[in-house]
Amino acid sequence: MNRLVLLTLQVLVAVALIGAWHIATTYQVLGDVKNIRFFFSTPVDVALKIWKFFVTGMIWKHLWITLEETLLAFVIGAGSGVAVGFWFARQPLVAAVFDPYVKMANALPRVVLAPIFMLWFGLGIWSKVALGVTLVFFVVFFNVYQGVKEVSPVILANARMLGMNERQLLRHVYWPSALSWMFSSLHTSVGFALVGAVVGEYLGAASGLGYVIHEAEGTFDVTGVFAGMVVLSAFVLIVDYAVTLFERRLMKWRPGPALNETPPKW
């Protein structure tokens, strides 16, 4: 498919959706416009609200707080996930002993931890970071654990034959393999870090995107809720794109997707 055609079609979807939204909230099509506006606001109002967010500059502070929480949650969660995953994979006894507890902790819906974290870490950023860490940790942990355990036995035997000792095996074989698994879960874990931050803010905070949305909701300001959601989505897309760029740089040894994913149609 031609890139331009694809882009046009993608834009058309947005135009159609926003157009439908606009018509339904401006003209008498689906019933009382005033009623519908209360529940759905209008695209123009939402756009104006977003414009105001940025013009007054109030949104920057919240964006920055959310970004800070996301990054901290990611770094702490990924770091501890790599360390513990590595440790468990190299010490099967430890892994066997902790196995039921790890499964239990992972089975727990993380949202129920939020109130506890508020209690422990207060209403500042750290309770949100903690929530994000509990999400990120398990994704990275499971990936690294699997990655270290499933290093190709042939690569390992070859490395041994090349004369590598345990320390060198760790550096040249286990570590890169574990990292590659961590990076393969990068999108998921960064996404989870963000979810942790926003959900945490939503449940109780004085700043951040989650707080902006929650506050608007509290005053039945549907326009504010939609505007907050649009900003949040754009923020997620930008973060995700940054991750993609980072990944491309670090994982260039990985084979890319096959050139022809679908057979040609004649």
């Binding site: 190709s152 042939v154 690569i155 035997a157 070859n158 034959m161 890169p176 990985r254």
Partner: peptide, 14 residues
């Protein structure tokens, strides 16, 4: 001894 394996034994990240 040097050992040449049947399967791919190169480190894919190098």
């Amino acid at each position: 001894a040097g050992y040449l394996f049947q399967q791919d034994a190169l480190m894919p990240w190098k």
